[in-house]
């Protein structure tokens, strides 16, 4: 099984203001970008983060070999049940997302 961390160069999650999280997946090659872009679905990201898939905004940026996801924070920054003030740990969950092999199977 291949996970995102095996083929992406860097995965970063940050707050974009108190109410949004943004996740940047940096790829070092066109090939890894294409593979992740095809395999990693909005449904998969929504499932991992426990939110409805309609809330996901996605930007495929081939010029940068970057795939970006932005979503309303599952828990608003700094509220009672927030565990991560800067939202940086969500990247670890995305890093463990399963990626299909080149033939499109897992």
């Amino acid at each position: 099984m291949t996970i995102l961390a095996d083929i992406a160069q860097k995965i970063r999650s940050k707050n974009a203001g108190p109410f949004w999280i943004t996740i940047d997946i940096f790829c070092s090659t066109k090939e890894s970008y294409a593979r992740i872009e095809q395999s990693l679905s909005n449904e998969q990201v929504a499932h991992i983060l426990g939110i409805p898939k309609e809330q996901i905004q996605r930007y495929d940026l081939p010029d940068l070999n970057v795939i970006k996801f932005s979503l309303p924070r599952p828990i608003v920054q700094g509220t009672r049940y927030d565990r991560d003030m800067h939202g940086a740990s969500f990247a670890n969950l995305i890093a463990e997302a399963e990626i299909l092999d080149e033939a499109g199977t897992s």
């Binding site: 940050k14 974009a16 905004q57 930007y59 940068l64």
Partner: peptide, 11 residues
């Protein structure tokens, strides 16, 4: 150009 991504929901 990659800095447009930083802490920004829309790049």
């Amino acid at each position: 150009s990659a800095h447009m991504l930083y802490e920004n929901s829309n790049p």
